[in-house]
Design a protein around this nucleic acid. Sequence first.
DNA 1: CAGTGAGCGAGCTTCCGCTTGACTT
Length: 781
Amino acid sequence: MAKNLLIVESPAKAKTIERILGEDFEVKSCYGHIRDLEKQDMGIDIKNNYKPSYIVPEEKQKVVKELKSLAKKSGEVWLATDEDREGEAISWHLCEVLGLDPKTTKRIVFHEITKPAILAAVQKPRTVDMNLVNAQQARRILDRIVGFELSPVLWRKMSMKNNLSAGRVQSVAVRIIAEREREINAFTPVSTFKIEASFTSKDISGKNVVFSAEGKKFSQEAGAQEFLNSCINAKYSVTDIQVKPGKKSPAAPFTTSTLQQEASRKLGYSVSRTMLLAQKLYESGKITYMRTDSVSLSETAMDNLKAEISSKFGNKYYQHRAFKNKNESAQEAHEAIRPTYMENMTVDDADCRRLYELIWKRTMASQMADAELEKTTAVIQISSNKEELKATGEVLKFDGFLKVYREDRDDDDITEDEQQDDMLPPLTVNQQLPLVEMRATERFSRPLPRYTEASLVKKLEELGIGRPSTYAPTISTILKRGYVEKRDKEGVIRHFRILKLKDNAVNKLTEQETTGAEKSKLFPTDLGLVVTDFLKQYFDDIMDYHFTARIEAEFDEVANGNLKWNNMIDEFYTPFKKDVDNTIENAERISGERELGTDPVTGKKVIARMGRYGPMVQIGEQNDEEKPKFAKLKNTQSIETINLDEAMELFRLPRNLGLFEGNEVAVNIGRFGPYIAHDKLFYSLGKEFDPYTIGFEEATPIIVEKRAAKQQRTIKVFEKEKIQLLRGPYGPYIKQGLRNYKIPKEKQEHVEGLELAEIKAIIEEVKANPPKRVPRKKKSS
DNA sequence: CAGTGAGCGAGCTTCCGCTTGACTT
């Protein structure tokens, strides 16, 4: 009898399942979706009740062909795609393409790749759930409509029109970044003076140790001053000691989002790097599937963990825990991310090791006992006034899960008053405490930090926007489109005041700190800000943070069979299309224009705005008799924050530094950054040079050095034929005009001896057999 | 590689969500 054919989405899963099911089944993978809407006319027949037209994309034709021929030969086809909306749709598309009847074809589901789960699934097949499929079609069609209607609006209305795009997910992601930036710009720090005193007491071994206690906060320096004055010559004694038990519980096992967050905080990985490494671990069978929103573990895994924890740390450290998903949008088609075998504490692959160990620890900790703490608070009385001081300390009584893992937190989750509690020395009520010193330190409130890739993912997940498989690609998209940039920001120096009471005298001093420094954060570009404002103005519905949640509720209604998908789409499309048409008709071009003031020399208006090639400033207007002068903004500047002085500074380029070897030395900023132009040649300026201040003495050595370096790279030149023999980073090569030609390996050894005829032959050879072009790897974060 | 900032308008771009692929500048 012919074998059964069982189709899953992932090839790695196929292998495992084939082992479990044995001889009767051949298990194959369809590699995700096999069909998509065609691009012509959006792939949707609006007039015909939104009828979708699907095609098998080029890159999927091989898989589809193979599945078709296997299906023909097989006894029965089983559909085992993931148990979620997308998985159901994939099963239906498979029916359509393989000529199977969705009403009778066996459809099975499982959430975990374990023998009991899969054998149980095979025992109770169902058929494709068309309501769920329709919910997916509605999702797909709505996303296509939003993306393919909105993007062209941007092409029409933006002066910078190079493949701009808009979409349900990406545009809201940019909005999140844009709004945070504006909050930060609008933030005014408020300072307070916090009282902190340090005392000495004896520890258990009788040694004198210093500990600190905190008091009132004052909003003004005068209040703090007055308080410290009142403490001169005061005595301090303990009036009360309270000891309270506390506990800490471990976090749930990893989902895609929490893995990305922790790998970012603990290992400094970008979201895409985390996913790349996780994919490698998954493909080599080391961890379970890495694109998941589920926090649950399989029974098998739980048993495995119990045994592992008990044998490594003892029964006391084990605690059974079943985690529930707090996230309403979760579809839970898979397990949480965990090691496949807990007995493997690490992996050989050095690249993957740190991520694996992180997953191992988090999984382990999730089934371990709470950590037990003891929190001590001592109240300290001041003899000369009514205020009290409080000293707090924390002692770990039982480490529990902290033995293996401690979760990191984002800056914005840590409240201002929180502090790291250390141990207190043993204190007794009525004990007199000698004061070391008391300080009132000025502290400034801080704005929320800018988003990292990972904290953006966290925010998107909270809003139910995007899916585990799209978090990393979404970030790549908004970076690639130039809506957002990932970069560092240097901090600025700020002074703060300290009032110090020591030896019965109060003194004032000023210290400085760096504030506002950020590393690898997401900043909106002017393009991102301007496009966000535009979309918010004309499409506030789609830009609403809860838009996705709202339509998800409707997709659920479709999935439950209470709503027809075409009706749902029509309800959305009719008003949306009206907005699109109205915007195209009436909206002004997007410029983000901001008037900065007037040029002190000419008295003309100075304006910052978006231009054809990016953000810029201009003196004068288009209609003036004289053409306006233009200058590009620096990378770190923004239309929103640049002031008149900074703008005028930009017009100082190009600068002429004088004559060198009889030719002018000019400095300017071009398409590729700052450069020196000299004798028709260009020399890029490194980061260490500032084009606005660089002088003749600094500029000429750059010319000389770069020229020498170029000489070194040049092996031979044939002026007449415009052929150069050069040394590049990949070895010697031939350059004729603008084209480069690779020199065959066997001839690279003696390039110096290559003659013109031989070189020409190589060029002809390469032209005749052009090297296969590999699609350039997409730049990812 | 290294200007530009306006308009004409051919032909093109674009979405989200599933999944991995394969090779030389």
